[in-house]
């Protein structure tokens, strides 16, 4: 019964499975320690960004500033990290704190400003992007090799990217979502009035959800820094909408209340790997976007067919 909650992830699992099988047929080399590392590294930034988006979507909102926070943390990390392990750790902590602060701004504006989340985060998207540009007007920066290797290397078939992701999932995400806060976040997205009547502090819940989102977006930025070994104020842009796509693809409801981590994480890998697969399939880069969008559309329509069986169309249209 409790597993029903995870049913919504099935679509993403099946899609990624089929994609990897096809990829393997085209390019058998992916089944090697090197191939596993490449695959894992490709999707981890988006997977973390998808978690950042998911926690906000669970409250019934949407966070357009995810990409800007990814850029901002990438710029801070690549600019101030230095090469001493102590300074690297200090800057990582600082970066996560900046992410939390960005989420706090979003959360306070949504909870107490009574402004639509999409508008709040659109405004902060510009602000955070601007801050990223102030930190790093030109792409560049310095990232020590041991930092890059610790996150993008691998040990046999175990990519360190997976270790990093699992640490974030099982040491941060799961404990938070299994606390009272986690239930409150889902309850607020499901039925805000009901949550208030049930004695839940709705504004506090919203703020903490956005803070948590900010931390995960900053973690995505830190991972991206290891991958690119440089800072770029424009690099995060694509993560905003792709994180929304991953969350929806992963079975969460944009209206809030429903969604679990595995779906969006797996969908993030699907969305990241598909570009390489299209390349391996010999599809001209000119048509890649069209195929990417087309495949996403087919998968989502397929996943939504069941809702059309409803008794009352009004319930569909109101969602």
């Amino acid at each position: 019964m409790i597993f029903r909650r995870y049913n919504t992830s099935v679509l993403a699992v099946v899609a990624l499975g089929l994609l990897l099988i096809y990829y393997y047929i085209r390019q058998p080399l992916i089944l090697s320690p090197f191939g596993a590392k490449i695959l894992a590294n490709q999707g981890t930034t988006l997977a973390l960004a998808a978690l950042a988006q998911l926690v906000v979507v669970l409250t019934g909102g949407v966070d357009l500033s995810v990409g800007a926070v990814v850029s901002l943390s990438n710029c801070i990390a690549a600019t101030y990290m230095g090469s001493h392990p102590a300074s690297v750790i200090a800057v990582c902590v600082l970066t996560l704190a900046v992410g939390a602060g960005a989420g706090l701004v979003n959360g306070v504006l949504v909870a107490y400003g009574r402004i639509q989340p999409i508008i709040v985060t659109l405004a902060t998207l510009y602000i955070f992007s601007g801050l990223a540009l102030m930190v790093r007007p030109q792409p560049g920066g310095l990232v020590p090799p041991f930092y890059a290797n610790a996150l993008t290397g691998g040990w046999g078939y175990l990519p360190y990217a997976m270790v990093a992701l699992f640490v974030m999932l099982f040491a941060v995400w799961t404990p938070l979502m299994r606390s009272r806060l986690g239930t409150a976040i889902r309850a607020v997205g499901d039925n805000p009035g009901g949550a208030h009547m049930s004695g839940i502090n709705v504004p506090r819940t919203l703020i903490l959800a956005y803070v948590m989102g900010g931390v995960f977006a900053a973690a995505a930025g830190l991972y991206l820094t290891a991958q690119t070994t440089s800072g770029d104020a424009a690099i995060g842009t694509s993560y905003t909408l792709n994180s929304v796509a991953a969350v929806v693809f992963g079975g969460a409801l944009l209206g809030g209340g429903r969604g679990v981590a595995p779906g969006p994480v797996i969908a993030a890998y699907f969305l990241s790997i598909i570009i390489s697969v299209l390349f391996a399939a010999g599809i001209s880069p000119f048509y890649q976007s069209v195929f990417q969008g087309g495949i996403l559309m087919v998968v989502l329509v397929f996943g939504n067919l069941w809702t059309l069986r409803t008794r009352n169309w009004l319930t569909i249209l109101k969602n």
């Binding site: 986690g182 499901d190 039925n191």
Partner: peptide, 26 residues
């Protein structure tokens, strides 16, 4: 009704005062 469609029956009943483990988990 002040209930939550996507939560379980038990989660609905104990919303806001769920029994916790020693680690603060529901």
């Amino acid at each position: 009704l002040s209930l939550f469609a996507h939560l379980t029956v038990a989660e609905n009943i104990f919303i806001g005062h769920e029994p916790l483990t020693r680690l603060g988990q529901v």
